[in-house]
């Protein structure tokens, strides 16, 4: 089992990720000029903006429902990885782009930390990690 201390860390990370991702949704769904500008540069306007917005919304929801947290973190980190690729290849880091890029990195870090802490909840790894160590402790 994940220890309570790590659980707390994970929840803090989840909340940060949800807050940052969540507030950008507003701009995406209301077609704020900055957002439209970004997605125009990526050649994804308007469908890409809406698809990514929807996926981010799903990630936010999954991140706060206890049984689906790791899935939310997986989705969130994938989206942020995509965003970072965007900054590297098209958008650059000038001006407020720097701020957005840093946000993406922060969310990515939060999501990855969550995944690491909750790795035992991942379906594939579960098979390997499910065995319970003896009281003598798991030998390293």
């Amino acid at each position: 089992m994940t220890s309570p201390k790590f659980k707390l860390v994970s929840w803090v990370a989840q909340i940060i990720a949800v807050l940052i991702m969540g507030q950008t949704l507003f701009f995406k769904f209301t077609a704020a000029p900055e957002s439209v500008q970004l997605f125009t540069e990526l050649n994804m306007e308007p469908h890409g903006r809406l698809i990514i917005g929807a996926l981010e919304l799903i990630a936010c929801i999954l991140l706060i429902i206890p049984s689906s947290i790791v899935y939310g973190a997986l989705l969130g980190s994938s989206l942020m990885a995509g965003a970072i690729i965007g900054h590297v290849t098209e958008l650059g880091w000038q001006g407020d782009r720097l701020e957005l890029g840093i946000y993406a990195i922060v969310v990515l870090t939060c999501c990855i930390s969550t995944i690491m802490i909750r790795r035992r909840e991942l379906p594939l790894l579960k098979v390997i990690h499910s065995d319970k160590p003896t009281k003598r402790g798991r030998r390293k």
Binding site: L42, N43, M44, G48, L74, S77, S78, L79, A81, G82, I85, G86, T89, E90
Partner: peptide, 21 residues
């Protein structure tokens, strides 16, 4: 996929990211 996303369409990165993972 990364190259595809860079040169052809950003949508390719929907594949880049899982494969990076």
């Amino acid at each position: 996929f990364f190259v595809g996303g860079w040169q052809i369409s950003f949508y390719f990165h929907f594949l880049t990211v899982p494969f990076l993972g």
